[in-house]
């Protein structure tokens, strides 16, 4: 009911995130069925009927209280399970980042994504930089390192198909990474209210096949060095 609505995942860590979502889904679904099921059964069974008085159960003795405390204990255990599994995925996506030789700077501004490649010298703000408006190219199957910046207000870098989201604060550089597995074109909306043009502030992510990527790089810099790669 929920999981099938997820858009196709094409990133490596996206699988882990989907795994967490699925775990939570099954746990909460089970509880939903259990609590609502009991609830419904009680409603039907104990509806008012003439000649059947209610019981007097205050729930102040341990034997009674156990009926709610034990399930709570189970909830606690499941909570911790979600936390432990989650911690690993969180660290993978947001804390550790793999070595990468493609480095891209994405700048959010009212109301576009400005995507900058450092060019063959591997450094930003030099003559061989290349800048694209609302268009971002990455290779498939390779980790890509991102530096996220914002010019004016807060924007949020969101790649639904890669399960990646990161708010961007003006005045800071925020690191992120991604590793796309499948070539194609994907939407890159801004996920944080940033003014009148927030609606429709989006870019396209183009994931190139390895060979295709080399061709694209060649086209851009008319040499064989890859953007971000030190020469």
């Amino acid at each position: 009911m929920f999981l099938s609505w997820l858009p196709e995942n094409v990133s490596t860590f996206g699988r882990d995130i989907d795994g967490i979502i699925a775990l939570i889904y099954y746990i909460t679904l089970a509880w939903f069925i259990a609590t609502m099921g009991t609830f419904a059964v009680f409603l039907v069974r104990y509806r008012r009927r003439a000649g059947r008085p209610a019981g007097y159960i205050k729930g102040d003795r341990w034997r009674e209280v156990a009926w709610v405390l034990l399930p709570c204990l189970l909830v606690l255990v499941l909570d911790l399970w979600i936390d432990f599994k989650g911690a690993r995925v969180w660290a993978k996506v947001k804390i550790e980042s793999p070595a990468s030789d493609v480095h891209i700077r994405v700048t959010g501004k009212q109301f576009n994504w400005v995507v900058t490649y450092p060019g063959p010298d591997g450094r930003f703000d030099t003559a061989d930089d290349k800048t694209f408006l609302d268009e971002m190219h990455v290779p498939a199957g390779k980790p890509v390192r991102l530096t996220l910046e914002a010019k004016d207000v807060i924007h949020s870098f969101f790649l639904p198909n890669l399960r990646l989201k990161q708010d961007i604060l003006p005045g800071r550089s925020i690191p992120a990474w991604l590793d796309a597995m499948k070539p194609g074109q994907y939407e890159l909306p801004c996920a944080h209210l940033c003014g009148v043009g927030h609606s429709g502030m989006k870019a396209t992510l183009i994931v190139h096949e390895a060979t295709d990527w080399d061709a694209w790089v060649g086209e851009q810099w008319s040499g064989s060095a890859r953007p971000g790669e030190k020469t």
Binding site: F39, F42, L43, Y46, R47, R48, A54, G55, I57, G59
Partner: peptide, 8 residues
């Protein structure tokens, strides 16, 4: 649990 054995 408050509903259990009630007269709803």
């Amino acid at each position: 649990a408050s509903l259990y054995r009630g007269s709803i």
